[in-house]
Nucleic acid binder design. Structure first.
Lengths: 216, 216
DNA sequence: CGTTAATAACTAACCGGTCATTTATTTACA
DNA sequence: TGTAAATAAATGACCGGTTAGTTATTAACG
C-alpha cells in the first residue's frame, strides 16, 4: 500500500502463453485426466485467467489436440533418426532403438501422451488416428523393416516381422505400464538398463537352454 | 388405447437389475469412458429409469467399482487354474498360460476393464490398488515362479525372473493394445494363434540365428 | 493514445443425485 | 378362488452444484 513500486497485475506475453497453457494442461491431464480437469485449473496453473485460454484455443478439446500434436512432433524427429539406423546391423539397430524408446518412455511427461490417448480415445477418435498416423505408421515399418532385413541377412531366424514387432516393443510397454500405472518395480527405476539388457538377451537368444528341446 | 392387452410399462425384476446395469455401464464406459457416460445413459441402455439405478448402487462411482469387482472375480478363478499349472513343465505351462490370456484378452469385454482402469486411475487410485491386489499380485508370482523353476531345472537359461516376466506377457499386451486401441492388425483377428506361435517361438528360441554371434 | 492482451463477472447447459408418486406383484383372508 | 390391503419396484420431475464458453471492461505498452 505504501509501496511506490506498483508491479503490474499481469504481463502481456502473447508469444509465450500457448506453450505455457499446454504445459499446464499436460500436467493436469496426467494428474486427473481430461474430463476431470477444468479449464479454470489449466488457466490457474498457467498463471492467467480462464478467459485468456480462449484467446489461444478454440475449446478445451482443442487444447488436448494441440497438446498431442506438440508431443508428437519430436517423436517424428526421432523417427528420422531411426531411418538412419537402418544402415546399421539389425541387431545393433534394434538394441539402440529399444534403449532410446525405453529411456524416453519412462519419462512421465512422454508416457503421459499415449496414456491420455488411451483414456480419451473413446471420446475423441480423431486422437487415435492422429497418433496412429504420426507415430505408429512411421515407427512400425522401421522396426518390421529392420527385422525383415535381419531375416534376409541370415542374422535372424525366419520369423514373421509383423508379429515379431510385438515381441520387440511389448516388453518395454509392459515395463512402463507396470511402473507408471501400478507402481510395480518402483525401485527398478535405476535398473532400467538392466531390464533392457535382460530383454535383449531373451529377445535375441530365447529362454530355452541350448541343450534342451526347445522347438515347437 | 383400443387395445385390450395393456402391457405393463415396467417389470419388477430386482434380481436381474444390478447385473443388467453393470452390463450397460461396461458397454458405455468402453465406448465413451467413465466421465463422459451419464447415469441416465446407463439406465436407458439397461432398460430402466435413472432413479432405479440408485436403488441398486450408491453412486456412479459405485457402479464402476462393482463393475471392476465383477470382472475380476473370474480372473481370480483363472489364477487357481494357473497354480495347478505349476506342476507342469515350465515351458508347457507358460505356453498354456499365454494362450489362455491372449484368448481372453482379445475379447473386448475383458480387455475393457484394464483399459478403464488405466483411464480412470488418475481419478480413482483405489481402482488401481484393487486391480493390483486381485490380479497382478496373484498372477505375477505364478509367472515369475514358473520362470524361476525353469531356470533351476535347467530348461531355461539363467535370466532374471522379474524382468523376464515382462518379456513373457509384454508382447500379448502390445498385440491387444495395437488391436483394441488403434485397430492395427484388424485382419489378424483370426491369426491370434499364429501370433502366439510366433511369440512363443521367439520367446523360447530367440531372434538370433544359431550360427550368428548372438551374445551381448 | 490506440491497440490488444488479459481479466472478472456472467450465462446457459448439463448432470449426479433425491424424492414424492405411481405401478406391479404378493399376501391375507372371506 | 376372488379381491383388497400391503409391499416392493420403478418412475420422472426436480434441485443444486459445477463448468465450458462469452462478454463487457480494464490494463499494459509501443
Amino acid at each position: 500500500m505504501a509501496d511506490s513500486k506498483r508491479q503490474p497485475k499481469f504481463r502481456r506475453r502473447a508469444e509465450a502463453r500457448p506453450d505455457e497453457v499446454l504445459d499446464a494442461a499436460l500436467d493436469l491431464f496426467i494428474e486427473k485426466g481430461f474430463a476431470a480437469t477444468r479449464v479454470a485449473d489449466i488457466a490457474a496453473r498457467a498463471g492467467l485467467s480462464k478467459g485468456a485460454v480462449y484467446l489461444y484455443f478454440e475449446s478445451k478439446e482443442a487444447v488436448l489436440e494441440a497438446l498431442v500434436r506438440r508431443a508428437l512432433a519430436p517423436i517424428a524427429e526421432q523417427m528420422s533418426l531411426l531411418s538412419h539406423a537402418e544402415d546399421a546391423h539389425p541387431r545393433a539397430a534394434i538394441e539402440m532403438l529399444l534403449r532410446l524408446i525405453a529411456g524416453r518412455a519412462m519419462d512421465p511427461k512422454v508416457a503421459a501422451v499415449p496414456k491420455i490417448i488411451m483414456a480419451e480415445v473413446g471420446n475423441f477418435p480423431a486422437l487415435a488416428k492422429l497418433y496412429r498416423r504420426q507415430v505408429l505408421d512411421m515407427a512400425m515399418p522401421v522396426v518390421t523393416g529392420l527385422i525383415e532385413r535381419g531375416v534376409k541377412m541370415g542374422v535372424f531366424r525366419p520369423v514373421d516381422p509383423e508379429f515379431t514387432l510385438r515381441s520387440v516393443i511389448g516388453p518395454v510397454i509392459a515395463h512402463v505400464l507396470l511402473h507408471q500405472i501400478f507402481g510395480i518395480g518402483e525401485g527398478l527405476d535405476a535398473h532400467l538398463d538392466r531390464f533392457i539388457d535382460n530383454h535383449i538377451d531373451v529377445l535375441m537368444n530365447g529362454l530355452a537352454a541350448s541343450g534342451g528341446s526347445a522347438n515347437g
